[in-house]
Each structure stands twice: as C-alpha cells, then as structure tokens.
Design a protein around this nucleic acid. Structure first.
Lengths: 355, 355
DNA sequence: ATCCCCCTCTGTATCGATTCAGAACTGTAT
DNA sequence: ATACAGTTCTGAATCGATACAGAGGGGGAT
C-alpha cells in the first residue's frame, strides 16, 4: 500500500492539514517544518498528493476533454484533425491544462458512457458527423463545451462554436471552377450517405445529406453551379467511404469509363481531392484530357500536389475552441466565431479542354 | 449545486448504495426499481456518477498519460510523433482507455508538477531528449510506464521499452551511402548540442551528444564510415535547432558555399532530410552536381519526395507501447521490444558524381 | 410447518485529500 | 500586567461515490 498524506502526518507528528499545506500552500507553515515534512515524505516514499482525491475535493480536474465523433485512431490519420488538435494543445499548454482524448467505440451506448466517465472540466467537440448524442451527453453532465459543428453553429443558439462559413467557402471555390467553363462536374464527399458504397449516388436534393459539413459544402458547390444554369440533378455526386485517398480514388476511377466523364471534380476535403488526383494519374486516364480537381482545407500535402483548394485556419480553429472553453468570454456573442477562408488557386484547376 | 447520488436516493426513497448499483451493477437490483431510479435521476437532473469520485473510490482512473518530453504543441507538428500517437490511441481505443496528453512548460519544476498532477494509471513516455526527470517523477509516483528512450532501452533494466536498434539502422543506411562511393559527407541532427545555432559543429567525439536518439543515429552513421576509412574528425556534423525543415535547410545551405561541399547529407530524421532537399532545390545550388540525401523514419512525405530512408513501424511502436502498459506481460523479458527496421532506397541517393 | 436459499436492498466504512474556523503560542505596544 | 495582532498549526467537516457484509422477505424443498 502506498503511504498517504496521513502516513506522512503521523511520521512527522503533525496534522494532516499541515502536510497538505506543505504541498499546496507553503505560506501557511514555517519553512523549517515544511522542509521536514517534505524530507520525511520522501523518506517514507510518499508519492505526493493523489491527483484524484485532490480533484474531488477541489471540484475541478484541470483537464479538458477532446471528443472526436469518430474513432480516435482515425483522427490521427486526418491531417486537418491533427492541425486542429495542435491548436487545441497550444492553448491548453499555455493554460497549464491537460488534454483528455476520449476514445469512442462503435456502439453509441458505449460512446455515451465514455463521455460520462471522462474526468474533465469541459469538452472541445470536433464533429465529423451529424451526431447530437455527444452534445446531449455533455449537456446532461452539465459541462461546458465548444463545438465545431456547422449546423449547431448556424443554429445561433447559446452554444459556443468556432467554425467557418462552409457553404459560402464552397460556393467560392465552385464559382472559380464554373468560371473556368466547367459545366459537367462531379462533387465528391466523404460518407455522403451513411451506408452507400464508394461511387456515384443519386440524391433527390442535397438536404438528404446528414453530415453537416458534407451537406454544407455540397450545397455551396451546388449554389455556384445553379447560378450558371447547372441544376442539382445535372451534378454527379460521388461518395467515398471514409475520408480516405484510396476510397476517393476508387470513386473517381469508376467515373472515367463513362461516356461523358466530368471535366472537373470538386472534393469536400483535400484528402479526397488527392485521392481523385491519384485516380487521374493512373494508367486508366492516361492520354485523356485533363480533369480539374479542387480540395478543401489546404492541408500540407495540398501545396506539393498543386491542389486548388480553400484554405481555412485549422490550428486557429482548435486554439480558439480551447480558449473559448478555458476562459469563456463575458459577452455571449463572442462565443460564436466564424473564421475567414481563402481560395487558393494552384495548378490542379484549369479551363475546360476543348474536345 | 448539481444533485448528487444522495439526492437521487432521497428522491426515490432508497439507499445511496442502491442508486450506485443502478448505474454500476444493474444485476444487483430489480429492473423495475432500477428504471424508477434512472427516471427520477433524469427528472431531478442528476448528471450520473461523478467520474472523479468514482476513480478515487475504485482506485484507478481508466486513462493513461502520454508524456512528450517536449512541448505538446510541437508533437503534433512532427509526423513521426503523430503516427506514434495514432498507434497509442488505437490500443487505448480497443482497451476503452482514455489518453491524457500532459502539457509541459519550459521550466522543469513545472514539468514535474504536471506529471505529479496527472490523474492516470500509467504513462507512455515519448522521449525526445535525454531527460530523466520525467521517468524519475513517474517512478516517484509509483506508476507503471513504458518508454521509447533508446538509452534506457539499451540499459536492459526492468524498464519496459519499445524501440528499434537506432545505431544498427543508422549504420545500415550509412553503409548504403558509403557503398555508393561517398566519402565527404555531412551528418545532420536535431539539436545535436543543446544550445548550438543551426549549422556546422565540431565535436571531439560522438559521445558528447546528449540526446540518445540523435547520439545513436550519428554513432551508427559514423560506424559505417569508419569501416570505409572515414574517421570521425573527417565527418561534418550539422545541427538544426529543432526538428524543422527550415532549420535543416539553413544548416545545409550554409555548407554549399564552402570550397569542398559534401557529396551526401545523412539526416537523423525525414523532416530534416526534407529540409536538406529544400536547400538543395534552391537557386543557391542550381547547376551544381547533385548531393545525395538520406532521412530516417519514412514518414508519408518521404515517399513523395523520393527520399531514401530507414523505415520503422511508427504506429506499431505506439501501439505496442500502450499495450505493454495496458496488459503487462507476465514475462518481464517480453517488456523489452526491439522492432525491425528496413532500408528504403529511393531516388534521393545516387553514386558520387565524378567532377 | 420448518428450514434453507436466493434475490433485493441497506448501513457503514472507506478512498485521499482540502478547507476553514479557530486554538495555541509569540511578540509588541500600552 | 493587559490587550492585541500575527503567525503557525489543528480538528472536524466535506468532496461524491463504491464495496462488502449482512438484513429482510419470498418461495421451494422436505
């Protein structure tokens, strides 16, 4: 059994309070006694005040939870998520707060338990899907949180939120593509519908897409093309199972054999766009006219690949989310942040080739 | 004030134990009563058992700490560290354990406190430097841990360890470079000496290098060149402040103006190697004979850059570290794992150009 | 009818600290 | 000598739950 505070107190012959003060409030006792206590503690192998007991008594933990509404191990493979995390960690670091990464198993019941069992003072929620259970679970626990879910952000509720205007940004990059003359285009999203296999999809309207981010970006793309006379049914929608390069490549490859392949592919993320480029770089497409590709997020690889994309401040998003949580602004309106985005035109887009 | 277990017990008219059982051990009470308790709890807004109190009583937390012996926010910018983390998180996920990322401020006193205050059941320590304070602090707390520090690993102590044979792997890639005929080479390491500015360094012997990983890799490089008759003093050692591309580029650029530039640069990490390539791709080097470059780790960018490097299983390293911590093997020898590495030859290395 | 067992539920001790009002002591001014 | 102010330390209450032995009641076997 490890010695406790009490054991040290007994060994020194003082009260428990005094030993506690020796650690947490040096000004409450004489330096000599404090030293004697610390020495004795070391001598009997006291590991220092138990953090859990301290948290219980003090009423706070000194850690914030980071909740990815997907597998945690996936998060580390997503460059955008990693940059978000880097931002969160920078803010936490400055604040001296730890970060608790909460793992999620598949079943949502377990996921709720994971939220309920997390010893944290609040949550940063990185929303990948349309799940509200996570927010509900946090709210039920009465913990403060900040979210990145565009739908909730747009809801303008009292929910603290850091995001971008997904739809407007998407419209912007799509307008660029439209201005280059593209009219036969494919839109590529991650898990456009929950269980659809990678490939083309027929959707009555964009509003059936459950994931808020995917929905908003697709809707933005559609907005821009609607303005140049291309209606929703004339757009090809591709889904990739999971935000992965191979899945995106597969989805795009399936399109290339068709009689009238698109002249441009607009992806909902850079990772998907890179997958599209992979497909276009393959032998299947060799000799055919080039197809323009756009991404979203501007991850590091995008520049090297010459990808035209939408830049959003990823670290900033994480940093602000954590700061909103760690020192909440007095003004509730300040808890609702929309960050600017920027269209970055590189070499992956060009005018429609005349055939 | 949030309602407690006791409040629910009072509201339902049962004992505290019964309410506790309703949450943690459904088999200990009738389904009907359990439902009534859960309903009442929801009605009065009880947030569920307090995780901190539960941990205190149960004696474990359900989280493991991940300690980077450097700024946490740096860790997310290092591709190798991210892959390590991905591995740790995969294991944690499977085990239903959370990950506590402990932030470190500059001062080592604060850093110790950070370790002392972390509410965790054990630590995975990702060692970047030669710091032993972290291990000492963890040991003083009496917590189990697993480390990646090669020096400790090599020490063959009872410390649990997952790593690679740094020196042998480094010797392998250096032998490849030597076999290509290179004799005038530069070795590039991250923070070879703590406070040296980026650029060349004169070291009496490799053993003055404090960081274990950097030391072992440089020593491995030197081993290979010693075999072909190039002694330590004939090797140029370059240091880059921090494992960053620009710092590496700066260090290498400083060498290009010299009368006898090296024909090869062997870097201690892919990030540094990419920096070296940046410098060589710049206008300063245009028109000059190519310089071979090697990296270490085989991060994702390495393949795209055609970098010859040493592949090591990064996720695997993290995964095994976490598993060693989460289910300790009965056999103590099994707690000491050396993973295989592989030389990956790409286009960044070639024979010495005849001038 | 008696005994025994099982199923539910309760009471109390306990996890390991922090907090805060106040006791004891010391020294200084009146 | 008395009062008063500081400093240093103590005691008891408290944070919010879990564990475990055991009480009480109902039903089946004998």
């Amino acid at each position: 059994m490890k010695p406790t505070l009490q054991a040290v107190a007994d060994a020194v012959g003082v009260s428990r309070s005094t030993v506690s003060n020796a650690y947490a409030r040096p000004d409450q006792l004489s330096a000599a006694l404090r030293q004697r206590i610390l020495d004795t503690a070391k001598a009997i192998g006291y590991p220092g005040p138990n953090p859990t007991a301290r948290s219980l008594r003090r009423g706070f933990v000194g850690a914030i939870g980071v909740l990815f509404t997907s597998q945690l191990s996936y998060a580390f493979t997503d460059p955008f998520a990693v940059r978000f995390l880097a931002g969160v960690s920078a803010a936490a670091e400055r604040h001296g707060t730890s970060l608790l990464l909460v793992p999620l198993s598949e079943s949502s019941a377990d996921a709720r338990t994971a939220v309920e069992n997390a010893a944290v003072d609040g949550f940063c929620v990185y929303c990948v899907g349309d799940e509200t259970w996570a927010l509900d679970a946090i709210r039920d626990r009465g913990l403060p949180f900040v979210t990145t879910a565009s739908r909730l952000g747009a809801a303008g509720r009292d929910i603290r939120y850091v995001g971008i205007d997904e739809r407007a940004a998407a419209r912007g990059i799509a307008a660029h593509v439209a201005a280059l003359g593209h009219r036969r285009v494919a839109l590529l999203g991650d898990t456009v519908l929950p269980d659809a296999p990678s490939g083309p999809l027929r959707l009555p309207t964009v509003d059936v897409v459950p994931r808020p981010t995917t929905h908003d970006r697709l809707a933005g793309f559609a907005d821009a093309f609607a303005e140049v006379g291309v209606a929703w049914p004339d757009l090809t929608v591709l889904t990739a199972r999971g935000n992965s390069r191979p899945a995106a490549a597969a989805a795009v490859a399936g399109l290339l054999d068709r009689p009238d392949p698109p002249t441009a592919v607009l992806a909902c993320s850079d990772v998907l766009a890179l997958g599209a480029l992979d497909a276009l770089a393959g032998p299947q497409h060799a000799g055919h006219p080039p197809i323009s590709v756009t991404g979203f997020d501007d991850i590091a690889e995008a520049a090297a690949a010459g990808l035209t994309t939408v830049r959003q401040p990823a670290e900033e998003r994480g940093r602000l989310a954590a700061e909103l949580l760690l020192d909440p602004p007095a003004d509730p309106d300040a808890g609702h942040i929309l960050l600017p985005t920027e269209l970055v035109v590189r070499t992956s887009t060009g005018p429609v080739p005349r055939s």
